[in-house]
Computed example of a mutant assay.
Amino acid sequence: MSPTAHSTSDKKTSAAARVLGSAAAGIAEIGVFHPVDTISKRLMSNHTKVTTLHELNQVIFRQAAAEPFVKRCFTLFPGLGYAACYKILQRIYKYGGQPFANEFLTKNFKDDFDGWFGPKNGKALMSATAGSLIGIGEVVLLPLDVLKIKRQTNPESFRGRGFLKVLADEGFGLYRGWGWTMARNAPGSFALFGGNSFAKEYIFGLKDYNQATWTQNFVTSIFGASASLIVSAPLDVIKTRIQNRNFDNPEGGFTILKNMFKNEGITAFFKGLTPKLLTTGPKLVFSFAMAQSLIPAFDKLLRK
Score class of each variant (00 low, 15 high):
180 W>C: 11
180 W>I: 15
183 A>K: 06
183 A>R: 08
183 A>W: 01
185 N>R: 13
185 N>V: 12
186 A>N: 14
187 P>K: 09
188 G>C: 03
189 S>T: 12
189 S>V: 10
190 F>T: 04
192 L>N: 04
192 L>M: 03
192 L>T: 06
193 F>R: 05
193 F>T: 13
194 G>E: 03
195 G>E: 08
196 N>R: 13
197 S>F: 02
197 S>L: 10
198 F>A: 08
199 A>L: 09
200 K>G: 15
201 E>R: 14
201 E>M: 15
201 E>I: 12
203 I>K: 03
204 F>N: 08
204 F>E: 03
205 G>H: 13
206 L>W: 01
207 K>G: 10
208 D>G: 00
209 Y>F: 10
209 Y>A: 13
210 N>E: 00
211 Q>E: 04
214 W>N: 09
214 W>M: 12
215 T>V: 13
215 T>W: 06
216 Q>H: 01
217 N>G: 10
217 N>A: 10
218 F>M: 11
218 F>Q: 09
218 F>G: 12
218 F>A: 15
218 F>N: 10
221 S>H: 03
221 S>E: 07
222 I>V: 09
224 G>A: 04
225 A>C: 10
228 S>P: 01
228 S>G: 08
228 S>Q: 02
232 S>M: 10
232 S>V: 08
233 A>L: 09
234 P>M: 11
234 P>G: 13
234 P>S: 15
235 L>V: 11
235 L>N: 05
235 L>D: 02
236 D>K: 04
238 I>W: 00
240 T>Q: 02
241 R>V: 11
241 R>N: 12
242 I>W: 04
242 I>C: 03
243 Q>I: 11
244 N>W: 04
245 R>G: 14
245 R>F: 09
245 R>I: 13
247 F>Y: 01
248 D>R: 10
248 D>G: 09
249 N>S: 01
250 P>S: 15
251 E>D: 00
251 E>S: 07
253 G>M: 02
255 T>G: 09
255 T>D: 14
255 T>P: 05
257 L>Q: 12
257 L>S: 14
259 N>H: 14
261 F>A: 12
263 N>W: 04
263 N>C: 06
264 E>C: 06
266 I>Q: 04
267 T>D: 07
267 T>M: 05
268 A>Y: 00
268 A>F: 01
268 A>D: 04
269 F>R: 05
270 F>K: 08
271 K>R: 03
271 K>D: 03
271 K>L: 06
271 K>M: 05
272 G>S: 08
275 P>Y: 01
276 K>E: 10
277 L>V: 06
277 L>T: 01
277 L>R: 02
278 L>I: 11
278 L>E: 11
278 L>K: 07
279 T>L: 11
279 T>I: 07
280 T>R: 06
281 G>D: 00
282 P>V: 13
283 K>E: 15
284 L>C: 11
284 L>Y: 07
284 L>D: 11
285 V>P: 01
285 V>R: 04
287 S>M: 10
288 F>I: 09
289 A>Y: 01
290 M>T: 14
290 M>C: 07
291 A>R: 06
292 Q>K: 04
293 S>R: 13
293 S>F: 05
293 S>H: 14
294 L>N: 08
294 L>C: 07
297 A>L: 06
297 A>S: 11
300 K>I: 09
